[in-house]
Amino acid sequence: MNTYSPDTVVPGAGARVQEASEIVASNLNKTYGAGPFAKTVIKDCSFTIESNKLTVMIGPSGCGKSTLIQLIAGFESADSGQLTMNGEPIVGPGKDRLVLFQESALFPWMTTYDNIMYGPRARGEGLKEAAEQAEFLLAKVGLEAFRDKYPTQLSGGMQRRAELARAMINKPEVMILDEPFRGLDNMSKELMWEYYATLYEEDRNTNFFVTTDIDEAIFLADRLLIMTNLPTSTRTVIDIDIPRPRKIEDLVHNPRANEIKKEVMTLLHEEAMKSFSGGSKAAADFLDAYSKRAG
């Protein structure tokens, strides 16, 4: 299972292309609570996170995407169905699948450098090489001058970059990002998209990115998984065939991007409507009228 080898850690070796690591989910089910309080969050959900691709999952908010991440990360297990990585069932958390959480999970009591070094130090693996790699990554994410600062002394964007570095030093086979740029202002958000896309284009590892932001999804994705409303399953998969490196302007000017955006919006709108009408007819009517006016 553990394919980590300290010998392979060479500064600047981030560009190596990794061996195929693919995650396959088939017919997953997950229900929380029991009896009259039972709530099915994931129902008959199947998808593939293809190796060496950036797969983005988008769905209405509160649709169970975070639950899927808990399953893939191994923090929780599904009630039924199969979840495998490279053919092996996922049974618990592991450093081959690293998660970047919605909120910053940098340890506030450690400096940027200690945060980045946490993984190798905790495992006691290849510390000398890790230290070199940490320097390389600090430079790469532009935080050399902030190595001895604590997370609360960094801006939101810096914290996200530090967290990317903390994950990358472990050379995970799969990076899992759960709405990582949520809460950043629009300017920092777009900078982080470009930044993150560049990092991805350099080594093309398997990345799984969850979001509710359509622009973010189209800008980043190789493959886009569109999820249904609760209980979650896969609605459609769209291949985003806009050439890389992409530019922010592409979102406005590229006809293919606009085409995809319309398609995604229609699908997501349908799903969002379901969640509204599930609760209140009036709210659904309002949303319908509103979207006609806006459209």
């Binding site: 592991g94 998660v99 909120e103």
Partner: peptide, 13 residues
């Protein structure tokens, strides 16, 4: 916050 302990165990602690 639970995400700290999850992050740590994710990183191999």
């Amino acid at each position: 916050d639970e995400s700290y302990s999850r992050a740590a165990s994710c990183l191999g602690a």
